[in-house]
Design a protein around this nucleic acid. Structure first.
Lengths: 209, 209, 209, 209
DNA sequence: AATGAATGAGTTTTCATTCAT
DNA sequence: TATGAATGAAAACTCATTCAT
């Protein structure tokens, strides 16, 4: 039975594999360490036999990395869809900040991507390898931001005096900081105020009066 | 013999323990996964006997988490010393951006901290626990930024109209974005220009003319 | 459906079973270890479904042992037919030596039999058990040699002063040594010369002038 | 702790490894299939921990193949010593036939070697590989026979008209046939008579009056 | 009758930890 | 105090066998 490569379309994943992916991502969301997950824990959670996992994957590592990739692909697809559905840059930015507050950490593709891009551990490198060979590659989020900001410039919503790539990372960094602030932080101002300041800070930088 | 708690002063660490810490951090910098490190790998690299590690620590986990904490403490101390030695906010910001470019990822306490604060894996939670019981706790970097920005406001270098905590995270987020940009890349503008824009962006936000 | 017992006439074997036998013997000839053959490897090679094998056999062991028995039966039948078709002892001996050179090791029933008779491993014992319950039993080759040498004595081609059984094993041993010599080698004389010496050595012992 | 290569001198083998070798060879002598031996069976028999086996070997296969090699080396050393201690060819031949009757099959290096040289299974090929990289290589027995017969020719005990290699294999083949006869055989003459005929047959061929 | 995805019992293998030296 | 050989509990992985289709 066809071995899993990670390049499968999201809709074409065998049901048992989907169960495995969901099990892994549940367990990770519950705070498990990717490298300490046991195959039996995963298959028990997935409700399938241990051997079945090995019908689709060659090793435990493969199961976990592919599950993480799947999660990121799915989250990115969702995020992309939602953002592109919004027509103004302000709406898009609002949606982004709302999402970030809603997800708070786990199963947040934005966060996962930052982890990935700033981590040189074996695990992260393996995830990146799979991402690079799939539709949803490593830089998909960066390209999405580029696209959003590019369109905003075209529409005149955002001034074009700053380089696109600078804006991509400036916006990304501020959103990430907001996420860290409300997630892990020892924050001394209220979250709604923080949110407002982040929103306005980005607009002020990109759309000066 | 004295078990290691992680609250030892940096100067009072037994030599074999220091060797263990260095070995772990070397291996992590080389891309090893914290959860997959073997005790024998660590002690081999440290050049000491496997049994010796257990004279100071109760388990492998302890060795690795304490080594990571040590590394973060050391890096924080260094960073703190250097930043406080600089008298103007602009100098401090310049130093920070230089450091970030120099270290590019591994053994970068800034990066490690972001990981930590945005990761709910077991390993990260254990590191945080030790941090919380030691001098250099989890929020030391945040407090350092607060201190720097607070002083800058007092000196009149930075305008006081933005809340301190917003500035802390805005600056942190932008610096992090710069780090991600130059590390994990796909960047379409040159790094020096990016650096200049980040530097000016922060100043423009905090010290408007 | 009719379970396979190993006592079927060679012509009455179901086609899928024949495919299994051929697959096993191919794989063994290619150097596979009988105890390490996987059912899936066998059925893949045979081009049939894995479940199908269990329509005819109760276990993997059965498949392999019966396949080996089948191979030996077939080879023995062929050898017997050819040898009995030759009317003089010299012709028979020549045929034997030619066969031995032609087959060189694998799928050589002579060699397999020696293995079997000198091996007390579980696998060999199981093959012997089936052989003993079938037409072509364990000692068929020995009895064939006895028959050939007996007739040769009757015809006066071979002197009767040596006991039949001694001649059977002397001839068998020399032929086997020739096979080992040309197969596993390190031989310092040329094969045709070796062949000539073996041939003449046997004749000289059995038919002294 | 030094990994085992199979090239160790017989006297320099670590005690736990020796226990493993003895356990394997006992089990094989009792009729176990090399490929079906379990690590736990071996270590239980050896009276050591399962993990200990993996301190010296990388896999189960390695344990078994090295044990077989060790057994062959030891047996060959013993055989070589005994044969070379005998001064006349007749004494040597007598010793050889006595040994063969005494050992009857298992732990008989002569038999094992024939198996090896006539078997192209993976297992045998692996044993040969190790043999080839050690002192006691694959052809050691053949070279010993060459040496014995060469000296006998020099001493005038054996006529020099037959090529040495032919004599080596003729003698080997006859001894093997004797072994098969008394081991596996359906023999119709008494063993002592068979022995006498084999002995005289060899002498008659090599030392004609 | 034929199939092959699913299974889990049974193995192999790993490696943190101990403890005699 | 330092060591590293020995250990076995725990984990990964295999693959013969079943059974729904």
């Amino acid at each position: 039975m066809a071995r899993i490569t990670g390049t499968e379309e999201t809709g074409r994943i065998p049901p048992k594999v989907l169960l495995l992916y969901q099990a892994v991502n549940q367990l990770l969301a519950e705070g498990a360490d990717p490298a300490n997950l046991k195959v039996s824990t995963i298959t028990d959670r997935a409700g399938i036999g241990k051997g079945t996992a090995y019908e689709y994957f060659d090793s435990k590592e493969e199961i976990v990395t592919h599950a993480v990739v799947y999660q990121m692909q799915t989250a990115m697809e969702q995020l992309e869809k939602e953002l592109l559905a919004r027509k103004s840059f302000r709406d898009q930015l609002n949606y982004l900040l709302d999402e970030v507050s809603a997800q708070k950490g786990e199963s947040n593709c934005f966060l996962k991507l930052v982890h990935l891009l700033t981590d040189n551990s074996q695990f992260s490198r393996q995830v990146q390898e799979i991402l690079d060979s799939a539709t949803c590659e490593r830089y998909r989020l960066i390209r999405l931001f580029r696209k959003l900001l590019g369109s905003a410039v075209e529409r005149g919503e955002v001034k074009g005096n700053l380089p696109l790539d600078y804006m991509v990372f400036s916006m990304g960094g501020r959103v990430l900081a907001y996420m860290v602030a409300i997630t892990g932080g020892d924050l001394q101002i209220e979250i709604p105020r923080m949110r407002k300041l982040v929103y306005e800070g980005i607009l002020a930088e990109f759309c000066p009066a």
